[in-house]
Write a protein that binds this DNA or RNA. Sequence first.
DNA 1: GCATTTTTGTACCGGATGGTAAATTGGCTG
DNA 2: CAGCCAATTTACCATCCGGTACAAAAATGC
Lengths: 218, 218
Amino acid sequence: MGSTAYRGRGRPRGFVEEEALDRAIRVFWEHGYEGASLSDLTAAMGINKPSLYIVFGSKEELFKRAVARYRDTYVAYAAGTLEEPTAYAVVESYLRAAVDALTGSGHPPGCLSIQGGLSCAPANSGISEFLAGYRAVFEGELAQRLARAEKEGDLEAGTDTAALARFVMSLSQGLAVHAAAGARREDLQAAVDVALRAIAAYLPAGNPVAPATETTGA
Amino acid sequence: MGSTAYRGRGRPRGFVEEEALDRAIRVFWEHGYEGASLSDLTAAMGINKPSLYIVFGSKEELFKRAVARYRDTYVAYAAGTLEEPTAYAVVESYLRAAVDALTGSGHPPGCLSIQGGLSCAPANSGISEFLAGYRAVFEGELAQRLARAEKEGDLEAGTDTAALARFVMSLSQGLAVHAAAGARREDLQAAVDVALRAIAAYLPAGNPVAPATETTGA
DNA sequence: GCATTTTTGTACCGGATGGTAAATTGGCTG
DNA sequence: CAGCCAATTTACCATCCGGTACAAAAATGC
């Protein structure tokens, strides 16, 4: 709790845990859980296998730690978008930010929660399930936020907000698939333009929230 | 060419090539290229490794043959949807049929072209690229079809038809991610309902194509 | 019947995998 | 200084990986 971390009696660690984890994130992100071998991981992390096992326990636990840190860093933007004042603003800012994140420079394209392991060998089926659960969390938060918007009169009464959230998350996951395959940022933003027209169709009549011009790219 | 196939001189084959390929499709579909071991494959196909290598050449060639047959069987519905008379009907029938295919019984949920290997070990990066190219083919065909629709006055003049196609394909790929994680058919159809509202926004004024009621599920 | 041809079953190959045992290193404590 | 202890290095483990060599089996052609 603070900067005066207790430095135990033994030999001090030759690496910073968070830094090593960041390196591991990249490897998992690029190659997936099964495509990332321990040799790849330790080489990128700058440590060797016994150190990895002492600190992280196993490859699976390392992966889960990596996903958790990925959420708290690379996907930290998502929570903020839920605080936009209107449903339309929430969806717009989430999808815009997602495309920017999916195609950002300085890290692999796409999304760790999908590339990590959409389907795995029978022995690793737990990884796919773990990631599916992880993805479901934000979809649930978005659905709740949209349900609140409907109560606040910010969406047409009777709107299926769960379906709306599922639509938004499906689109962003499909955009992640495109990004992983090398799609350009502005092309994905143009697809978001289309999606926003759908959201606009759910606004109550006379609602002034819909945008005058489409902003493509960033 | 016909039913009188030439039966060579040697020992006759103990299996039908297409049947074995169908079994392989399931294994790749469920576990991905890297998650499907040769042992898994040969066990499911009912043959042993030398037979597999004589007939299919290698694991990679087997996979590509599997994807080709998958396209010609499980995804055969897609080509037909392009022949619907209007842009709206094309998109609606494609998305409806895609959800039904993604959640169909009697085969793994989701889509082989995504689960097969969104990201791979460095040695298998060719697989991800192969699948990305495969996915791009139908997106291109859909974009062409929508461009024709715009020329025919079936979509607003000036519509970004490439973006529209990218939107539709991104959504369907995201629905595939959801399906692979176990999403229910009717929940995915409800997300399609939302998407169709976006398409409706691109119809010329006074176009009577938009549906009166949303048909959820099938 | 016998040689030929192709597929089959079995057993094996080198290499990589995730994971560890054992011993060395290096810094703290007394 | 000696004693301790954790993190390091190195070497190794059993197992599985994709892929093959080899010989037995089963059909045809002569």
